[in-house]
């Protein structure tokens, strides 16, 4: 159905072919299949594919380099999918936890980049429409009141009011304005140094954590930043099946 060729700045090409819920990742030069995964309700799962018995065995450091290359290409593709706002659907990047952590062992190459339908997102993060509506109405209120000064200040005020409204709900299903230490995922004082500051969290027990990041104007959530946020979330909520990052 879809074929995406990612050409890295060094010229190496990685091809992502998606047919239904199955995604095959190939080397753009040799055509060799590097990975094949299927998107399931448990995330990306590896699928078997034919490998030549005569193919040379790769050394661990070659595997690591290949893994890094595939991950970088996947993040580039994810960024592209995420900024295509005219499409019906939400960009999704699924990979095992180890893929996110630089320098960690390369074990299972299950990885999937693509779009999920709004229906699927509603199933996984049931409060997403509510959060979007809250952000939209709050931004409109602040805009109508005026007197906020710079656009930066406008953004800060909108953030604070959204957080205040969510905290006022006293709903354990939504958490606003928390900070987790980047290295350990331990909760720290909001906005303290070296911590990952989170706008809104929706823990959907037992298996999913949805993270909402509010962006104003032309600001975008960069893929590298998304990976940092999800890494901290994984440490704070270990053992979940889905960690979903949503830009509002």
């Amino acid at each position: 159905d879809e074929q995406h060729t990612v050409t890295a700045p060094d010229g190496t090409r990685t091809v992502f072919e998606t047919s239904g819920l199955t995604q095959t990742i190939r080397d753009g030069g040799s055509g060799e299949i590097l990975s094949r995964s299927r998107l399931t309700t448990s995330g990306a799962e590896p699928e078997a594919f034919f490998q030549s018995a005569r193919a040379p065995q790769r050394l661990p450091r070659e595997l690591k380099r290949l893994s890094d290359r595939i991950l970088q290409a996947a993040i580039s593709l994810f960024t592209t999918e995420a900024i295509r706002r005219n499409r019906d659907g939400t960009a999704i990047f699924a990979a095992p936890a180890s893929e996110y952590i630089p320098g960690d062992a390369f074990n299972d190459r299950a990885m999937w980049v693509g779009a999920v339908s709004q229906r699927e997102l509603d199933r996984l993060c049931p409060r997403n429409a509510e959060i979007q509506a809250l952000a939209k109405s709050t931004a409109a209120e602040v805009r109508a009141l005026g007197g906020y000064g710079t656009e930066q200040n406008f953004g800060n005020i909108v953030h604070r009011i959204i957080a205040h409204k969510i905290k006022s709900m006293k709903d354990p299903g939504l958490i606003a304005e928390v900070s987790y230490a980047a290295e350990t995922g331990i909760g720290v004082h909001y906005s303290s140094g070296q911590s990952i500051r989170l706008d809104v969290l929706e823990p959907v027990r037992p298996s999913t954590v949805c993270v909402y990041d509010h962006k104003m104007g032309k600001a975008i959530l960069r893929a590298v930043r998304a990976v940092d946020i999800i890494t901290a979330i994984q440490k704070h909520y270990p053992g979940m099946r889905n960690y979903i990052m949503i830009e509002v």
């Binding site: 159905d1 879809e2 074929q3 995406h4 060729t5 990612v6 050409t7 890295a8 700045p9 970088q72 290409a73 580039s76 593709l77 960024t79 592209t80 900024i83 295509r84 960069r222």
Partner: peptide
Amino acid sequence: STTQEEVVTADGSRVLSIRI
């Protein structure tokens, strides 16, 4: 129908997408 689109990302990668 087939659509083709090329995007350059912030990190300098190019993504060529073909959809059938």
